[in-house]
Amino acid sequence: MPTTLIFAIGRNWRPYLFSVLIPVLFLCTGRAQAGVGLGEIAATASDGTITLFYPSQAVEQQLRRGRFVLNLAERAEPVRGNGRLIVISHGSGGGPWVHVNLARALVEAGFVVAMPQHHADNFMDDSNPGPDSWALRPAEMSRAIDAVGRDARFASLLTLDKVGIYGMSAGGHTALSMAGGRWSPDGFRQHCETSLEEDFQACVGLITRLTGGMLDGIKKWAAMLVIRHRFSDATPREHHDPRVAAVVAGVPAAADFDLSSLEHPVMPVALITAGQDRWLIPRFHSGLVLQACKSCVRLAELPAAGHGALLSPLPPGLTGLLGDMLNDPPGFDRSQMAEVDQKIARFFEQQLLQK
């Protein structure tokens, strides 16, 4: 503001100056300090609820969602950020609240974040995880992009020609599918045929575990009986959405992919790996993708992290097999995950905001 104008306003220049500069500063940067808005798009006959996080000037309030206490501005009016959308695919039995810290980092960078609830593989209904869910998820992500684009609150704030995808665990499988990865249920069967004992939890989930006891043989026999019956279809599954321009896959399920389909992805792809992951052992999953892919980058390597490191916040009080798979291993420093969230945000900024 010119000095002459400030003096011309006289004693009342301060409120006038702040009233002009504060909105200008907010609009000029996607990293302006503002509240994180929380909204949703209601479920339809074919799709679950889509949870939305977005830039807002509203004041955040303390909210309780299940076991989580969060600070968000519920049903706040959205404001324009950087004009880009990130869609997050949650893991098996997951939901939006375990990715709030990442959502905050993305919103503070100016992004709108959408998290669709995947059919029959979410925290409210985990009745059908695994390959059956993986086959549905990519189309659910595309329909989530459509739904946000139709929403009157966001239609004028977003340009959907360059959308980012993030996914963790089963959501990482979704992300790799959105990047052009091709897989089949029979590929899952083949992996479990050859590596059932070494990668047991990836093949059977949380139904049971191997203990080294006399029942292990029966468990392996029963697991393969079910897997061979359910997952014999060799028809390739693939999904293409030209709006997707960058992908981040965190500790992804990946053993069933035709790795040649991920050798030269048509978009930037980044991976996050956890060295102590006992649910999706890296050498069968993320490690294979990094070996095959010529252009993929490892955005973060966490040698002391377990499978649940990317759940942020981590659900409190996890016990039993679920706790063993998701709780942090001894010696893991969870404070570093804030920097991982920032790396994800910067990756999407570099890939989606460049002209």
Score class of each variant (00 low, 15 high):
residue 7 F to K: 14
residue 10 G to V: 09
residue 152 A to R: 15
residue 10 G to A: 04
residue 196 L to F: 04
residue 16 Y to M: 12
residue 3 T to W: 04
residue 72 L to P: 08
residue 17 L to C: 11
residue 148 V to P: 07
residue 175 A to Y: 08
residue 89 S to K: 09
residue 25 L to F: 15
residue 270 A to H: 05
residue 176 L to Y: 10
residue 128 N to S: 13
residue 216 D to C: 02
residue 253 A to H: 07
residue 67 R to S: 14
residue 187 G to H: 02
residue 271 L to H: 02
residue 92 S to K: 01
residue 28 C to F: 10
residue 147 A to M: 09
residue 73 A to P: 00
residue 234 A to R: 13
residue 162 K to T: 08
residue 318 L to P: 04
residue 319 T to I: 03
residue 200 F to W: 02
residue 153 R to E: 02
residue 304 A to Y: 01
residue 144 A to V: 13
residue 273 T to R: 03
residue 219 K to F: 13
residue 57 Q to R: 15
residue 95 G to W: 14
residue 100 V to L: 01
residue 66 G to C: 07
residue 49 T to W: 05
residue 182 R to G: 07
residue 23 P to H: 12
residue 139 A to D: 15
residue 86 I to F: 07
residue 53 F to Q: 06
residue 128 N to M: 12
residue 184 S to K: 06
residue 274 A to G: 04
residue 354 Q to D: 13
residue 299 L to S: 00
residue 332 F to A: 00
residue 141 M to L: 15
residue 51 T to Q: 09
residue 80 R to E: 11
residue 48 G to V: 05
residue 28 C to H: 11
residue 225 L to N: 15
residue 82 N to F: 02
residue 151 D to P: 01
residue 4 T to G: 09
residue 335 S to E: 11
residue 39 G to W: 06
residue 321 L to I: 11
residue 260 S to V: 06
residue 4 T to H: 10
residue 231 F to P: 02
residue 162 K to C: 07
residue 217 G to H: 08
residue 93 G to E: 08
residue 181 G to I: 06
residue 313 P to R: 05
residue 238 E to N: 15
residue 287 G to V: 01
residue 206 L to D: 12
residue 332 F to M: 00
residue 202 A to K: 00
residue 112 V to W: 09
residue 174 T to P: 03
residue 66 G to N: 12
residue 189 R to W: 01
residue 236 P to T: 10
residue 206 L to Q: 04
residue 116 P to S: 04
residue 126 D to Q: 15
residue 256 D to R: 01
residue 114 A to T: 07
residue 307 H to Q: 03
residue 172 G to I: 00
residue 352 L to Q: 11
residue 19 S to F: 07
residue 108 E to P: 00
